[in-house]
Design a protein around this nucleic acid. Sequence first.
DNA 1: GTCGACATGTAAATTGTTACATGATTTA
DNA 2: TAAATCATGTAACAATTTACATGTCGAC
Lengths: 185, 185
Amino acid sequence: MKKVKQIKTTSLDYAILGLIQQEPLSGYGIRKQFETTAIGNYSSSPGAVYPALDRLQKLGLVVKSLLENQKKEKFRCTPKGIDTLKIWLLQPVEINDVAKNVDVLLLKFAFMDTLLTKEQKLEYLTSFQKQLKIYIEQLKAFHSEEGSSLPLNGRLAFEHGLAGYSTTYKWCKNAIAAIRNHQEK
Amino acid sequence: MKKVKQIKTTSLDYAILGLIQQEPLSGYGIRKQFETTAIGNYSSSPGAVYPALDRLQKLGLVVKSLLENQKKEKFRCTPKGIDTLKIWLLQPVEINDVAKNVDVLLLKFAFMDTLLTKEQKLEYLTSFQKQLKIYIEQLKAFHSEEGSSLPLNGRLAFEHGLAGYSTTYKWCKNAIAAIRNHQEK
DNA sequence: GTCGACATGTAAATTGTTACATGATTTA
DNA sequence: TAAATCATGTAACAATTTACATGTCGAC
């Protein structure tokens, strides 16, 4: 079986796709978003963003073009780019994402706004919440078994993690209610 | 002015230093820590860990040696390694760390356990808390100004961030009390 | 007219990922 | 004895950081 050269789409690539799907941006505009907003930990350095845009263009996921009423060319998603983004958004929430990539899960949720249906969003949040519950229970089990044997600083740091996940769990509950009550246009 | 070849110590390097300062470990043991515990987002791949250990050995920050009552050689910190780690731990908490690297700040706090004094820990937490307060106020200001103009998903994601920082703030308060009441040995 | 922000890029060095390779030791 | 885990590494590749380079445009 011949091995096909697989061009990967990285997390940064998806972040860019999601950003310009909401609003077309110049390369510089994308960099500013990563630099100045609380979007996640994506690199705003030109040496990361411009090569990423090249990759995405080569893959046919974005194009740089002049829009009506605009002076400057900006990047926007192609239909293929939108599809790629949707597939990413619809990937099931794994417990490993919950443990290590909560911020990516939240970014995905933000990008879903106009791309997925109300039902898909609710399914995402429900599954997020379910994985969170499992993970929190694991952490609590560890805490009651071995918590007292940890050094003070270590135990406190661990409890910070636990508190953070509990906050996210509560947020899920609230977000589910908010999406459910929201008028679908 | 001649430019001196600067060997950088990366975040992964510090994480390794901190780990083996708590307990000497083999390269494999370090990998397992990153893979199986909730320590942060450090790479457990051999292609990251072993080259990092080479770097640290070259810098004279760690050594691999046989300890008493042990069959296998393990890595541990040299005095220079401990100093390097302490300098890192004592670095002032910047608002940018609070915004983008809370997990690193918590890892540092965990590593402080036996390395810093009670007063230094309290100073760290106090400064962490102060920067958090500033950042949270910035976020709240943004929320009341522009929150209503955000799409629902974006606003909810933003509110997740806010809730997370608030949780960390409360944790700081609690951790300060816990450290303060703790008997210094 | 110059300062700062807008705007796009490149090159070198470093770092990390993925996949492979190897062998020892433990355990079922 | 076969499988799983311990243990250490390398090679090819992909990605990122850092630093540099260049030029436009509007404000003051």
